[in-house]
Design a protein around this nucleic acid. Structure first.
Lengths: 231, 231
DNA sequence: GCCTTTATCTCGTGC
DNA sequence: GCACGAGGTAAAGGC
């Protein structure tokens, strides 16, 4: 990992074209050849970058560039596409290199998969008398998150999202259309379950006869702890 | 902007929980209080981070932590949510601070808006005799990218994407359903225009009677230059 | 290897 | 300020 702080301008040509005017910035060169150009704000996204696999080649500025104050040019080429990032370095304020090794990586907890697991365990959250048929019920166009049965024994297809938008409703609609064509399983009703359901999505779901259920992750995890203690 | 290279472990609690075991990493502390934790690989996304607005407070390790090798604790708290990021620093390998100022920002070119502009100018790309009605034609559920008329004077709703996936076809389908209920404008046919159309999207579009048109951005920009030269 | 789905998405834009 | 759509989305998981 090499860290450089320098006045620079940047040009990118690839899926789009982009340009950064001359200013002081932090340049991060990773061991895999990738380059990140960060400013002192924004969020974690760099102003510009080149993703691996790629390689950097350093060259000297031509007469015109040198006259403009450029001391060094970095040309970063992607190995597979023809994306190119050119960093024109002016004054270099800092330059250091560090050996980091391979990172052991992030351990996560609390994403959609966890929600699905919890809901499968606590399927009664959908309403009294509901029973789980299976998680990841496969259809021709992909897996339905949860297939359940309501108190009357009718099939219920559940689509789970952390944040429920129209996309999720569309997805569930496609599954329902398909499943309701299959006489073995029809009729199937739909439930759209999410920690947060956006108004547009709720409207669309209601319009299509899909029930919306808001999930409380913390409460469900609490219930899960009770389960764990009791059994 | 402060750059620190150090052996550290990290814990995040917020919209999810996450943990990073002890390893050497780069810590980037931005002027707005945000913190990024980078490894020497991956992509532009840090292993972990805290987005602004937030603030860092430094504290000394307790006896137990100190015995484990912790020399300093950084607690990064989000100003609005209760997200917390705790960095447990062990050995510090590098520490430097740099004044960058506010970045002038990125200038982009070649995104969906440019495609829409070019297609509006060169509406005949859709087929002979096509004329432009208007861009961003408003409906109750949102704006249709382009409304045009074909050689027979029939309305044509165009959805433009850089990369055409099923989402775009669904979006256009919703517009078409709505517009075809309006006797003033019905019948409306649909055109799905993109630089690249995914096979699934093409199949879905054909199934719904929506025509697919692949756009050549470079060629259209070339035409645009010709336009500019001629007029 | 390709495709689909998720994301602490981020980021702009229009209301 | 919120909601919605786009992204050089990136990254993970299934087939």
């Amino acid at each position: 990992m090499r860290l450089v702080v320098a006045h620079c301008s940047v040009d990118y040509a690839g899926r789009l074209s982009a340009h950064l005017p001359l200013a002081p910035r932090v340049l991060m060169l990773k061991a895999d050849g990738s380059v990140l150009i960060h400013s002192d704000g924004g969020s974690y996204k760099p102003l510009n970058w080149m993703s691996p696999p790629c390689s950097v080649s350093v060259s000297q500025p031509d007469e015109h560039e040198a006259a403009g104050g450029v001391t060094e040019l970095w040309t970063v080429r992607h190995a597979k596409t023809d994306d190119v990032l050119v960093v024109s370095l002016h004054e270099i304020l800092h330059d250091s290199a560090h050996e980091l090794g391979i990172d052991p990586g992030l351990i996560k907890d609390g994403v959609e998969a966890d929600l699905q697991e919890l809901l499968a365990e606590q399927i009664e959250v959908l309403g009294e008398g509901h029973t789980l048929v299976r998680r990841e019920y496969m259809t021709a166009i992909g897996p339905v998150d949860i297939l359940a049965r309501d108190a009357n024994g009718r099939s219920v297809a559940v689509e789970i999202k952390r944040r429920g938008g129209v996309d999720g409703v569309e997805q569930l609609t496609r599954y329902l259309e398909l499943m309701n064509r299959d006489p073995h399983i029809a009729p199937v009703t739909g439930v759209f379950a999410a920690q947060e359901i956006k108004p547009q999505a709720r409207t669309l779901a209601q319009d299509r006869g899909i029930r919306c259920v808001v999930l409380d992750y913390d409460a469900m995890r609490g219930m899960d702890d009770v389960h764990a203690r009791l059994f």
